[in-house]
Design a protein around this nucleic acid. Structure first.
Lengths: 155, 155
DNA sequence: TTTTGTGCAAAGACTTTGCAGGAAG
DNA sequence: CTTCCTGCAAAGTCTTTGCACAAAA
């Protein structure tokens, strides 16, 4: 994941002005490895900047995403952001349903899925959801822990 | 994919009233194998029902999704619906970026991704995007056709 | 001092909710 | 004839845009 400094450097190199708010944003994402919604970010920033407006948060999130320092993912419950991965090789993720931190998976299933030749593969998505070691749930919490019985978006 | 009749039967069995609009909805999803947005559905239904209101479309889509006859997926550009899969075994999908039809993939990568024991796997998502045989794109259309170079949401 | 960022206000897109009349069973 | 469905109107949520002032380089 990109560090606070790398985020600031990247913004600076692209000619963006390094305002105090943007420094704080860089720090937030540089130190928080989970996903954050625009509202999360607004609430966090609001603690420091009393007159903060929502549109500036949106603008900065968008600028940072377009610049490539933030990744934007659409979850069922809305759009969320986190610092881009610094790993440069292709990989996938485990995502914790509690803290929304991500952990890399180096295995890539695409070559093993026998997609017929007449289907032109462009991109793919492989995500494993569950609870990380810090957020373990009781086994009987009503959620299956059998990897083959929990389904999301695979239909 | 569920047929028009199965959709209607399921709704009827659950005590839902089979109105003309709902018959048309069942027919739409029973015969269209791609994903449709609420707007798509509204526009289609609007051709037949002049005084149609958006909220009724939303209500019916939600009811049908909660009943299980429709599947709802969040794409980058919004929420979309299609008839539920009738296949009862676990599978994944190839999704055409042009027509948004889906094609089953029986291979499931979860067991092969070496998720550490301390990560409690709950569910997973594996989707392959591209162009189906009816929607092939020229190879130089600016989109990679290399399955290993196209990335979406895997970071 | 020039260019970009910010807050404010407003609007826009999408979705949900309360209500009263109308239709299904 | 009872219950559910529909359209209408309104409101709610999330996000974007235009403008004038303020701040960065």
């Amino acid at each position: 994941m990109l560090s606070t400094e790398k985020i600031i450097d990247a913004m600076s190199e692209q000619g963006l002005r390094i305002t105090d708010q943007r420094k704080t944003l860089a720090k937030l994402f540089g130190e928080h490895s989970g996903y954050l919604s625009a509202k999360d970010v607004y609430e966090f920033m609001g603690k420091k900047y009393s007159g903060l407006s929502f549109d500036t948060v949106y603008r900065n999130l968008r600028v940072m995403q377009e610049l490539g320092v933030l990744e934007q993912i659409v979850f069922e419950d809305g759009v969320k952001f986190k610092a881009s991965c610094s790993e440069d090789h292709h990989h996938h993720h485990m995502i914790c349903l509690q803290c929304e931190k991500t952990y890399p998976i180096s295995f890539c299933p695409v070559s093993m899925a026998d997609t017929p030749d007449e289907f032109q593969v462009v991109k793919h998505k492989f995500e494993v959801f569950g609870y990380c070691k810090d957020c373990r749930q009781p086994a009987d919490a009503g959620l299956s822990v059998n990897p083959l019985s929990g389904h999301t978006g695979e239909h």
